[in-house]
Nucleic acid binder design. Structure first.
Length: 253
DNA sequence: CGTATTTGACCGGCGC
DNA sequence: GCGCCGGTCAAATACG
């Protein structure tokens, strides 16, 4: 499976560009969610407090400029194709470094901003993981009105924090098989949630990728998975035949 | 017995 | 400065 985990770069033309444009870009990626998760397709966005972004056919043009609220039916499930995956992700995240490739092709939505790393961990952490934060006046980092103090704090944290993103998945299983091996190193009960948050580290030597997993308080059927950092290796279940496919590793910088 | 998980302690950031 | 909270550590425990 030489093509595993390779992002369809034709849809991410400025993949190498570190300066984000302020556009919303559609793309596809192949993930290796295994067969038993095929009915647990991730479809969330990186910020659970913001509207879930609706998938837009990649052929459509200008209407892509605005995130649209996702249509949900009365069962609070997606009314669109369940095979759609919607993820707002930081521009410099290589999706394939967190997901290996596989038979399932999911649609993702990449939100690109005018400055690098605007999806700072702080923003994701406060907005996505901790719904109590950011309530004083609703100051939003994504707008130019951000205070200098706040920006300073964020910058300070950016120094040490890896890029991260998270998404929601409808799943009975907490830990989705993303092809990598993880070791649990902590569990925490987060305030105002009934479900604990679990912390995992990639077991690969020198790979510092972390992920955390928790259930959405509002809907325990949803698993929120947050990845931080980039894998420096291919998914572990490729290891057996990875000797002959070192070129594949270049996709997992 | 080696490895993975659990879980209370600890630490640092942040708000008040 | 203090307390709260999230994230991490590491000893204890479980597991294969």
């Amino acid at each position: 499976m030489a093509s595993q985990g390779i992002l369809n770069q034709s849809l991410f033309e400025d993949h190498q560009d570190h300066h984000m444009s302020s556009s919303i870009q559609m793309g596809f990626f192949s993930s290796n969610f295994p067969q038993n998760y095929s009915n647990n397709i991730p479809y969330g966005c990186s910020n659970i407090n913001q509207p879930i972004l609706r998938t837009i056919p990649s052929s459509s043009s200008d209407e892509q400029q605005q995130p649209l609220p996702y249509n949900t039916n009365n069962n609070n499930t997606l009314s669109q194709s369940s095979s759609s995956t919607l993820i707002k992700l930081q521009k410099d995240i290589d999706f394939t470094s967190n997901f290996g490739g596989g038979p399932y092709q999911h649609q993702i939505l990449s939100l690109q901003r005018s400055s690098p790393n605007l999806w700072s961990w702080g923003e994701v952490n406060y907005d996505c993981m901790s719904s109590k934060r950011n309530t004083n006046g609703g100051e939003n980092i994504s707008h130019l009105g951000i205070s200098a103090i706040k920006m300073k704090k964020i910058k300070a944290r950016r120094k040490v924090r890896e890029p991260r993103f998270c998404f929601k998945t409808l799943s009975d299983v907490d830990v989705l098989d993303d092809g990598y091996k993880w070791r649990k190193y902590g569990q925490k009960v987060v305030k105002n949630t009934q479900h604990p948050r679990s912390y995992y580290r990639c077991t690969q030597d020198n790979c510092r990728v972390k992920k955390r997993v928790e259930r959405l308080a509002e809907d325990p059927r949803m698993v929120i998975t947050t990845y931080e950092g980039r894998h420096i290796h291919s998914p572990s279940h490729d290891e057996e035949d990875s000797q002959a496919s070192s070129q594949v590793n270049s996709y997992f910088w």
